[in-house]
Amino acid sequence: METTTAPTETVGESKTLVRGNALEKTYGSRLPLGRSTPVLTGADIEVRAGEIVGIVGENGSGKSTLMKILVGVLDHDVGTVERTGTVGWCPQEPLLYDRLTVSETFRLFGAGYGMSREEIDAAKRRLADELDFERYLDYRVDQLSGGNRQKVNLSIALMHDPDVLMLDEPYTGFDWETYLRFWDMAQDLANDGTAVVMISHLIEERSRLDRVFEVRDGLVHDVTDEETESGLRSDPEGEHE
């Protein structure tokens, strides 16, 4: 396993910010006779600055596994990952501290990102305004609705203006207006040079994506110009894999 933060080359006008080469991952069992499950068997992917990339695939195909490996929260068995710049990660399930308020959550994760108090407050105000959750800033996370919790989950990934944004079905629970606002934000970020990588299940999103990768049989296929066999279904509640 190898992970580096070395800058990679420029393709056309866009710099490659994330690259995974020949990634392999097998989930093993801790029990002696347990089954091991190979998920990735040589996946290659690269993401460039300023593009919105969709990752699609059947349930259990390895989309979330691939994303976690690219983010750096899951080890891979074989292959290399190169990352340039900062990464923001929005996991599918909000991984937050239930008993903290939204403001305290910003403070805690902002400290993790190395932000100053002023930067954290500014990011909190900006994102609360954009995603419309200002009135919940003093609510505890466990008192929020699913949609508002997801807004906070997304905001934590965005608050430090990352160079690469990795989103695992970030709109789960969003109402229609928030969903549209989210896409505007994603487009603005991409226009500013942020690479946005998103696990997606919605066929309506196809036109918003610059490139589409399908995870199938442990490999990553560029299906930007083809119909995918399984991805991009009308399945807004796409089952967690």
Binding site: V71, G72, V73, V87, W89, P91, E93, L95, L96, Y97, L108, F109, A111, G112, Y113, G114, I156, H160
Partner: peptide, 14 residues
């Protein structure tokens, strides 16, 4: 109680 959230916090830089 917060094992998974801890992993996310570590990803941010803790």
């Amino acid at each position: 109680s917060a094992r998974e959230a801890d992993r996310r916090l570590v990803q941010t830089g803790y």
